[in-house]
Design a protein around this nucleic acid. Structure first.
Length: 420
DNA sequence: TCTGGGGTCCTAGGACCC
DNA sequence: TCTGGGGTCCTAGGACCC
């Protein structure tokens, strides 16, 4: 047994694939390399037409002029990813397609191919696990990796291992990524952004003041638009200015938990471990309609969508081997307000009809007088199918089986809560 | 020109139980 | 008789992240 060093300095890496969704598309359409391209919108129609019109032509040989442009885009949706040439126009993730079209009308727009992206996601993660097994999944294009005990993980502060991982991912997938290595997840996450694309940044504990403090507070993972705005009102713009405030002062303004966390974050303190396995808490399906729909006038259409969402979430549960006890719905109104309702059953289920019935009961408790832009169905309180927790039956609640407004069948009801 | 879809975690009030 | 306290579960909303 080798002598285990008690106190190897913690080296945590954050790895982020560069413009992931767009880069996957560029492998298919290399003729778009170097051009502004955005992925998003979710409407596959234009892409289908493109391929149809060029049937028999290899994808790589479809002329650039044949691709749909952002200025011709119609419909709802946001940008999922923009290539770096597109980003130079100020276009970025989560931006509405219409706004992006103003900034960069000549950008080529492609839909997301989720199956393809998932395939590449599995591939790059497999490459990492081969080299450094302590990896935490943070979504489709991001991971944390604990370098501490990996051979070579300490050399040059982690740069040697980061280079190896970068090279191995490129060889396996043709895709580039950016890596930050630091004493903890919080700093590693910020560091991975320092040198994009295809960069590596090494940050040590003693670098926090010089490299982290000048950054805007929004760069801290966990400070979003709301907290940023509030901090600005308090005349705090940089992480250094945040660090300069007494802990108690932050607790007074942001609460015991969030205030204390903010103070630690500003000082670069973060002890969270890299978590290799986790169980899902909920599964959901939701959809934004092409146009806002009205509960009564568009009842048939909404009913079909509602039932389909239930069917799809049930399918997801079964495919992944889970059952859930809490069934919930989500509505977004035309004014963008969101309402949720949920109902906990006496037993866990993965059955579409059971989910549909429970979701229908939830529907009765919400205002259906306004036009809707989104409908969603969620199943929570998950347990592995067949596990003891899954079999547990709570005190039965009185089962209600009266039809809801969206039930399949003749329209007999009025919206329950619509008031003038 | 309004703003996707999939998640996690936190807070807070009320029900209910001991 | 005028008012305990702790714990857990349920529900709704919101901030945040990828």
């Amino acid at each position: 047994m080798h002598n285990r060093r008690v106190s190897l300095p913690r080296r945590i890496a954050h790895l982020d694939m560069d413009a992931f969704f767009a880069s996957v598309e560029l492998l298919r359409y290399p003729q778009l390399q170097g051009l502004p391209v955005v992925i998003g919108g979710g409407r596959r129609e234009a892409d289908r037409l493109l391929r149809e019109r060029h049937a028999g032509v290899p994808l790589a040989q479809i002329p650039v002029a044949a691709f749909p442009l952002l200025k011709d885009y119609v419909g709802r949706g946001v940008i999922t990813t923009a290539t770096y040439p597109a980003r130079q126009f100020g276009v970025g993730s989560a931006m509405g397609m219409m706004k992006a079209a103003k900034l960069c009308p000549q950008a080529i727009v492609l839909p997301v191919d989720f199956d393809e992206v998932r395939r590449f996601s599995r591939a790059f993660k497999a490459v990492i696990r081969e080299i450094a097994p302590v990896m935490e999944d943070r979504g489709i294009d991001e991971v944390y990796i604990d370098f501490t005990e990996v051979p070579g993980g300490q050399r040059e502060g982690g740069r040697v291992l980061a280079r190896l991982i970068q090279k191995s991912i490129f060889e396996a997938t043709g895709l580039t990524c950016s890596i930050g290595v630091a004493p903890n997840k919080l700093i590693a996450k910020m560091a991975s952004e320092f040198d994009k694309p295809n960069g590596i940044s090494i940050v040590h504990e003693q670098d926090v003041q010089a490299r982290i403090w000048p950054l805007p507070v929004r760069k801290i993972n966990g400070i979003g638009p709301k907290s940023e705005e509030k901090l600005h009102r308090l005349h705090i713009r940089t992480i250094g200015e945040l660090a300069a405030r007494p802990r108690e002062w932050l607790v007074d303004h942001f609460g015991a938990s969030y205030g204390a966390w903010m103070h630690d974050a500003a000082w670069g303190r973060d002890e969270r471990p890299v978590v290799t396995e986790s169980e899902p808490v909920s599964m959901s399906r939701e959809t934004t309609f092409e146009r806002d729909l009205h509960a009564v006038r568009d009842r048939t259409e909404l009913g079909a969508i509602f039932t389909d969402l239930c069917r799809r979430v049930a399918e997801d549960l079964r495919r992944k081997g889970y059952v859930g006890r809490t069934i919930g719905i989500k509505l977004r109104y035309d004014d963008f307000r969101t309402a949720t309702r949920d109902l906990t059953l006496d037993h866990a289920t993965d059955d579409a009809a059971t989910i549909r019935r429970a979701a229908g009961q939830c529907l009765k408790r919400v205002d259906l007088g306004r036009r809707l832009r989104l409908l969603g169905v969620r199943v929570g309180k998950l347990a592995k199918a067949g596990s003891e927790a899954a079999a547990e039956v709570r005190t039965p609640v009185a089962a209600e089986h009266t039809p809801d407004l969206f039930h399949e069948g003749p329209a007999v009801e009025r919206p329950a809560t619509s008031k003038g």
